[in-house]
Amino acid sequence: MIKIKLNNKDKDIEENSSISALIELLELNPHSIVTEVNLNIIQKDKREDYILNDGDKVEIITFLGGG
């Protein structure tokens, strides 16, 4: 297991997990979110290949109503 910061909270995940795997684990709709690792945006088509490392700061962002 490795430890990442997910949306500013600690989270343990399996080693060699990709971002896509994380999204699946969290049961999120991959089309309605933006993913960022260590302040870099990871495009949708790069998520499958992007392997998370221990200590990575992962942000999962979406669009909500706002003025």
Partner: peptide, 19 residues
Amino acid sequence: ITIALRRVNLENPQDNVLN
């Protein structure tokens, strides 16, 4: 039209307003 960006609430994921 304006929209806002937020962290996904992982316990209770919200609907994306873009839909």
